[in-house]
């Protein structure tokens, strides 16, 4: 049924398109879905992705930038020559597909364990950190005047949000308390420079090919804030997938990341990046606890969510390694 709707939609803006095939849902909760499909055309089929909130799910949840903003950001990134899919169509009410957009499908891998271990990515791994440094600098440098409306965050606000969320669980975690205290004491205050921040720049949201990074996805958490936040988040140990001595995603060093960032004309502040790495580690830990809460209260009563609750202790050991390292 979605193929018929997509076929009608595509025919309205893609000259020569005769329908769509192979529609399959890639992921999705109740309010947001991602579909892959092929546009049928006499010149050969074209791979496409639909990202949408189905009809009846208009508003995006608290922190989300919203699908219209995501589409604008992806197109701006594409126009700036950054690895980003071209946005083909923003859904209109006439499409009867809900809200969202259709973009070009980019082939490649998003699964961290494959990127870090498979032979076909052996040449990509040593260049990725520097490459991502350049890409994230490009994102931070997108023209401010053309950016959509987004929430503005600061370290102070982020600490307060994390603390509120953690306290709402009513479950004591002395290591999280230590991290919150550490962050409050070192809160650098408002950033001298406020830029677009991707907000979730890490494995899973990066399409990688044998040649390196091909696309940055998932702008749902984009906001204005301290650009060092993105550099800290990609260094969080949870995204190293076991390769813990390579802080950037398990494939590179901070120095390479910062060098790429500098090549694109921007300067990293290592101390501030470290501050955001601690914040990010705590943030992931609290997100794990949050998933446990959603498992308990429904509607997603799945084993996976329950078990993610038992991964928050991983962030506790990583916080201790950062804040109270042991010798040896």
């Amino acid at each position: 049924m979605i193929e018929d709707q997509l076929g009608r939609c595509v025919a309205s803006w893609y000259p020569g398109a005769t329908g769509v095939t192979g529609a399959a849902k890639l992921s999705g909760g109740a309010s947001q879905e991602t579909w892959t499909f092929d546009i049928v055309h006499a010149d050969g089929s074209v791979g496409a992705i639909l990202r949408r909130a189905p009809p009846g799910y208009g508003a995006s949840p608290g922190r989300a930038a919203g699908l219209d903003a995501e589409a604008t950001l992806m197109q701006l990134a594409h126009d700036a020559g950054l690895p980003s899919p071209r946005v083909m169509h923003v859904l209109t009410p006439d499409d009867e597909l809900g809200t969202g957009f259709i973009m070009q499908r980019i082939e490649g891998e998003t699964i961290a364990r494959k990127i870090l271990r498979d032979a076909q990515f052996a040449k990509a791994r040593p260049i990725l950190a520097r490459q991502l440094g350049r890409v994230i600098a490009g994102i931070h440098g997108l023209p401010a005047l053309r950016l959509p409306k987004l929430r503005e965050m600061s370290a102070t606000k982020e600490i307060a949000d994390l603390e509120r969320e953690y306290r709402s669980f009513g479950w004591p975690r002395p290591v999280f308390e230590l991290a919150l205290r550490w962050l409050r004491e070192r809160d650098p205050g408002p950033s001298k420079e406020v830029t677009l921040v991707h907000g979730d720049f890490r494995h899973g949201n990066l399409i990688v090919g044998p040649d390196g990074v091909r696309a940055v996805l998932d702008w749902e958490l984009a906001h204005f804030g301290d650009p060092m936040e993105d550099l800290g988040w990609i260094c969080v140990n949870s995204w190293r997938f076991g390769v813990i001595d390579k802080p950037v995603g398990g494939f590179g060093s901070r120095e390479e990341l910062f060098a790429g960032y500098a090549e694109a004309g921007r300067k990293a502040d290592p101390a501030r990046v470290m501050f955001w790495e601690v914040m990010g580690t705590l943030r992931w830990g609290i997100m794990c606890c949050g998933m446990m809460q959603r498992f308990r209260s429904g509607p997603d009563h799945s084993m996976e969510r329950a078990m993610i609750g038992r991964r928050s202790s991983e962030t506790e050991i990583d916080l201790l390694r950062l804040l109270a390292p042991r010798g040896g």
């Binding site: 002395p174 290591v175 230590l178 140990n237 190293r240 076991g242 390769v243 813990i244 038992r310 991964r311 202790s313 991983e314 506790e316 050991i317 990583d318 201790l320 390694r321 109270a324 042991r326």
Partner: peptide
Amino acid sequence: LWQTTMDKLAVDQPNYASYKRE
């Protein structure tokens, strides 16, 4: 805090790389 966290990881994720290192 270290001992308590190590005891948690021994149950939760004994294969976690940070835990094995520590």
